[in-house]
């Protein structure tokens, strides 16, 4: 159990460049792939059905997409960790890099930009230039006012982050589908969930 600080910090997730290479490499070599268009069509069918089910009450559709994403996220995180063997992140900044360069890359083959950090560094935005969920999708007028088409992504991130002890709020701020300039998701860290102490140890 030697405690060589220098070698330890060098071996933890290194500079940004290596995370990108790492993510790219896993995408290229350790990922079974399907056509993105199939994914888009399937997701579109699901959203469409929800709009019918909830009689175009888009707030409910948003909510349901979020819940669906959460259930996927709590499973997806294990798949992600098993494939990448990444340890817990040291900071929210590192987390944002891992989300952008590894998670989005490996699963969706896109690399959203990280930006718009809050003053106390507890929140950031992900800017999606490309979004396989919504390729070629056009929203009708009523949906364009209230529907966050890709809200499933917020649920996925929330669920995944919760499993690594980060209690975060995740929500859409802007979406090109709604006429916005960009597609922007916001991630705000509420608290790090302290590892539970076993009963009897405190």
């Amino acid at each position: 159990m030697s405690a060589n600080s220098a070698s330890i910090s060098a071996s933890s997730a290194g500079p940004k460049k290596s995370l990108k290479t790492f993510g790219d490499d896993i995408w290229k070599n350790k990922t079974a792939k399907i056509n993105a268009e199939l994914f888009t069509l399937t997701y579109g069918s699901i959203v469409s059905q929800l709009c019918t089910d909830f009689e175009r009450d888009f707030k409910k559709v948003n909510s349901q997409l979020y819940a669906m994403g959460y259930n996927i996220g709590v499973r997806l995180i294990e798949d992600f960790l098993a494939r990448t063997a990444l340890p817990r992140c040291d900071s929210l900044a590192q987390t944002s890099e891992v989300i952008s360069k590894c998670a989005f890359k490996i699963f969706l083959n896109v690399t959203p930009q990280v930006g718009n950090w809050s003053n106390n560094k507890d929140a950031f935005s992900l800017f999606l230039d490309e979004n396989p969920l919504s390729d070629f999708v056009e929203l009708p007028m009523d949906a364009a006012k209230e529907l966050w088409y890709s809200n499933i992504l917020c649920g996925v991130l929330r669920g995944a982050l919760e499993m690594v002890q980060m209690d975060c709020d995740v929500w859409f701020v802007n979406d090109v589908l709604r006429g916005g300039q960009s597609t922007e998701m916001r991630v705000k860290l509420n608290r790090i969930m302290k590892d539970e102490i076993p009963a009897g140890e405190d």
């Binding site: 792939k33 399907i34 056509n35 994914f39 929800l50 909830f54 669906m68 969706l108």
Partner: peptide, 28 residues
């Protein structure tokens, strides 16, 4: 050459559609 995504998330999306349908039923 077509754009791709990971097969795992596709499978998960398909599978989670079932609990989704059940949850919608409960909600309605």
């Amino acid at each position: 050459s077509l754009p791709k995504v990971d097969e795992t998330i596709y499978r998960m999306l398909l599978n989670e559609a079932v609990p989704l349908a059940i949850s919608v039923e409960k909600s309605l």
